[in-house]
Design a binder for these strands. Structure first.
Ligand SMILES: [Zn+2]
Ligand SMILES: [Zn+2]
Ligand SMILES: [Zn+2]
Ligand SMILES: [Zn+2]
Lengths: 138, 138
DNA sequence: GATGATAATGATAAATCTTCTCATTATCAT
DNA sequence: ATGATAATGAGAAGATTTATCATTATCATC
């Protein structure tokens, strides 16, 4: 029940917040603020773009969603299900796939240690062309 | 000699291009377009911000520089010396360190293959706090 | 259920980063 | 030196995101 998640985050349960969180949960994908705004408008919801940006940032701070900065220029958001993962992005169709590699995760810790960094976060994005016919032909 | 690099890229040798490439070479760091613009102005050069953006993009296409998209929001550029590397970024002071880990590079190839992606590029950025006293205290 | 303190919303303006436009200027092959 | 062509730079415009603020909604308390 997403309403409890919103309340736990110290935020009041409002229609925009419930709508945005529900959309992210049911969609499952990696959506930009503009995506969320447009989808909600298409579904007949009345919502302001500023609210979408504001709420997504609040959800990020509250740990409900994770922000990803792909090289597209705009941030995309996904539900934070607690398990970190990294991304593969198709440069042609924009498809996003997720992966988690224990070896890479471990090596990063070691590298940070070697450089005297206390690691806080990381972002690994592999760009390429997916195996769809219209994409694989480079 | 950077003039030859510019010529090889099919670009005319102009003052702005030489100034920008020289600056990136002597500075060595990871500079945003705005950084480059400000530094050149401080050095007394007459240059337009649009030119800096234009030239950096051309240099990127020509393989003279590499663009990095850290989560700061603005792209930063560095000379492409031919050897790929990834980055550690201090969230406090902005210090950037570079690393290259053969294990991670190899694993990425395998992951892309598993997912049917033909890998074109990747970006790995580790965010944390460096070991400077004013940064290490989280 | 009504009240009111407080927080949230949404329209709009503004900030930020980047690209586009176009008249002027510079480059370079001849 | 000349001229075709490319490059520059000032400013407008585009794209994404954040700030402002009057209006509205939430929710603890009555
Ligand atoms: Zn694809
Ligand atoms: Zn994801
Ligand atoms: Zn630091
Ligand atoms: Zn670097």
């Amino acid at each position: 029940m997403e309403n409890q998640d919103i309340k736990k985050a110290g935020l009041k349960i409002t229609l925009p917040r419930v709508k945005i969180l529900t959309l992210l949960e049911k969609h499952g994908g990696h959506l930009s603020a503009e995506d969320v705004y447009k989808i909600l408008l298409e579904e007949g919801e009345e919502i302001g773009l500023a609210t979408v940006y504001r709420v997504l940032t609040q959800f990020e701070s509250a740990g409900l969603v994770v922000r990803q900065n792909f090289e597209s220029g705009q941030s995309v958001f996904e539900i934070d299900n607690g398990t970190h993962h990294d991304h593969l992005v198709c440069l042609k169709c924009g498809k996003v796939e997720e992966f988690l590699d224990a070896t890479i995760e471990k090596r990063q810790e070691a590298i940070a240690r070697q450089h005297g960094f206390s690691i806080k976060d990381h972002a690994l994005v592999i760009y390429g062309y997916c195996n769809k016919p219209e994409c694989s032909a480079e």
